[in-house]
């Protein structure tokens, strides 16, 4: 099908204008992070000279590297934990037939109805009583079990022909080995999707790290940014923006690389 030139022009106009509007806050922040205070005060759009001073300052005054390291540790831990638990559970729901399986699956689905935000009080107390405040395990373990991920992987595992399982049963391969050597490699695309999703959401997590950390030693970047903003609110916008840009770079890169997969994977989990 060919498109008329007029329609093409209209579409490109719409796309460009929308992209400008949508990306403007990010562009402005990006541009400001390279400006001197002078430029910001006078309301410049493009920095008169590119200065890295803001980045220098933000690393100097804040333990930003420490925060980033913490965020990486926590996000990767959550990602791996979710992948392991969700794929194990999904495997049981697809490949092992046992009594009560359907009831358990319903229970898993039902957990999606309970918002984490409604549980923060007892969860905070649990973590506190375990002595996990200011610890990586306290920040990550509560998020390991994940109904959505289990559901997404279950949908995906179901597309693996059951004959593969039967052939390995005849060959004498046990469930654990089949899970490790066949199911996981065959389903790696959706594992990657889920991993990207898990990393993104963990990196961007806000409420729980706010509650579960009191000490800079274990604070994540998001809480670091909160600190930065409340302390520097008055005039050093360049420094704040530099901090914010550093915080979003890892996730933006991940999103740009994995956008296509994420889009297909999430739609699949949502609708099948």
């Amino acid at each position: 099908m060919t498109m008329s030139l007029r329609r093409k022009v209209i579409l490109y106009c719409l796309l460009v204008v929308s992209a400008l509007f949508l990306f403007a806050p990010t562009i402005i922040a990006f541009s400001m992070s390279f400006m001197t205070n002078q430029d910001i005060m006078t309301g410049k759009i493009i920095p008169t000279s590119i200065s890295f001073e803001n980045y220098f300052h933000v690393f100097q005054r804040f333990p930003l590297l420490k925060y980033m390291f913490n965020s990486f540790v926590v996000s990767i831990a959550i990602m791996l934990g979710q992948l392991a638990l969700a794929s194990l559970a999904a495997y049981a729901f697809v490949f092992i037939e046992f009594k009560g399986r359907d009831v358990l699956f319903f229970l898993f689905i039902a957990t999606m109805m309970v918002p984490f935000e409604a549980l923060i009080i007892p969860n905070f107390q649990t973590i506190r009583d375990l002595g996990w405040i200011d610890s990586y395990q306290g920040l990550s373990i509560p998020f390991f079990a994940m109904a959505f991920g289990t559901f997404l992987l279950r949908q995906n595992f179901k597309q693996i022909p059951k004959e593969l399982k039967e052939a390995s049963e005849i060959a004498g391969m046990g469930d654990l080995k089949f899970y490790l050597t066949v199911v996981l490699p065959v389903a790696r695309t959706s594992l990657v999707t889920l991993g990207v999703y898990g990393f993104l959401t963990s990196w961007n997590m806000y409420l729980w790290p706010l509650l579960a950390t009191t000490d800079n030693e274990y604070r994540t970047v998001q809480i670091g940014l909160r600190q930065l903003q409340s302390q520097e609110q008055l005039n050093e916008w360049g420094v704040i923006m530099a901090g914010a840009i550093i915080v979003v770079i890892p996730t933006l890169i991940l999103l740009f690389v994995g956008q296509k997969k994420l889009q297909q994977g999430l739609a699949e989990g949502a609708l099948k």
């Binding site: 796309l15 929308s18 992209a19 949508l22 990306f23 806050p25 990010t26 402005i28 922040a29 400001m32 993104l200 990196w203 961007n204 806000y206 970047v221 998001q222 809480i223 940014l225 909160r226 903003q229 609110q233 916008w237 704040i240 923006m241 901090g243 914010a244 840009i245 915080v247 979003v248 996730t251 933006l252 991940l254 999103l255 740009f256 956008q259 889009q263």
Partner: peptide
Amino acid sequence: FFRTMFSSTMGISVAAASVFWMFL
């Protein structure tokens, strides 16, 4: 390119987005 632009806010955390808007 446009698709990436449009989906970009998913990669921007609440904290960072709030900082951007705080300025706006």
